[in-house]
Design a protein around this nucleic acid. Structure first.
Lengths: 138, 138
DNA sequence: GTAACTGCAAAATATTTGCATCCTT
DNA sequence: AAGGATGCAAATATTTTGCAGTTAC
């Protein structure tokens, strides 16, 4: 596991630091997406709030993680698929937000094609479904 | 027009006040969705920032407007269709964000059905497409 | 050794809350 | 008149920026 994390950072020309390794581990262990606040709690104050902001921003720029649109104002992040290169996101998968437990899942179901009016050029499609997840629907 | 605005407020048991009328007009005239900051600018300081927060929240609760999920941290709002009653949103339409001009469109194209894993219950589906709108793609 | 990264302090923004006053009904 | 809505002040929360010290390579 440590190797995987290390590789991701090196591949993206980022220095391997404690905070980056930790934050990447959080994402790998997480069931779903994480918000800034989640990471802050998980870290147990072991590194600065500002470092989290900067690390997340760096990871987004490098295409390691991507943001997930949510209907409330919260910003969540999740790991990108391997095909993601810097600036070339292919994250047209579906996100599911559970209203009960709050978990955000990245589903592998592919995104259905969308009909748009003349002249509209599509660059990215996000599908955000909310409701109850498998664990909470019983 | 004034009648329409008035009706919306009365139908939802809200007192008809200047700020509410103005904000509803903004939405009716707007090409797309509006953020809190947009409304603040459009209002030209004629009413308080806090009033805007509270008015938007009230309108969302009553089902007059709805939030639009965006990948950045911004929160945008748009008018709901007539069928929307308080707490019963039927806004499964598609939102398009133009990367160039920043306008958010609510498209009437209906949302394609989504395949989900066993046990997942869908309550709401948001599709957010980004790219270039008709005006900016030339 | 040098460039990159982090922590701390502080600034800038955004959002929420309490309360007195004013307006709608 | 009464309840709800607004404005103002202030408390909170969130995000960004600058800079000095530290760490990775």
């Amino acid at each position: 596991m440590a190797d995987v994390i290390n590789d991701i950072l090196k591949r993206n020309q980022l220095s391997v630091t404690d905070s980056r390794k930790k934050i990447l581990e959080f994402f790998h262990h997480a069931d779903g997406a994480l918000a800034h606040a989640d990471i802050e709690k998980m870290s147990g104050e072991s590194f600065d709030r500002v470092t989290i902001y900067r690390t997340l921003q760096t990871f987004v720029e490098k295409g390691i993680i991507h943001t997930i649109p949510t209907a409330d104002n919260s910003v969540k992040y999740a790991l990108c698929k391997d095909e993601c290169a810097a600036g070339h996101h292919h994250d047209d998968h579906i996100h599911f937000l559970c209203d009960d437990c709050g978990t955000t899942y990245c589903l592998d179901t592919h995104v259905p094609a969308v009909q748009l009016p003349q002249g509209f050029v599509v660059k990215r499609t996000d599908v955000v479904v909310s409701g109850k997840c498998g664990k909470c629907s019983n």
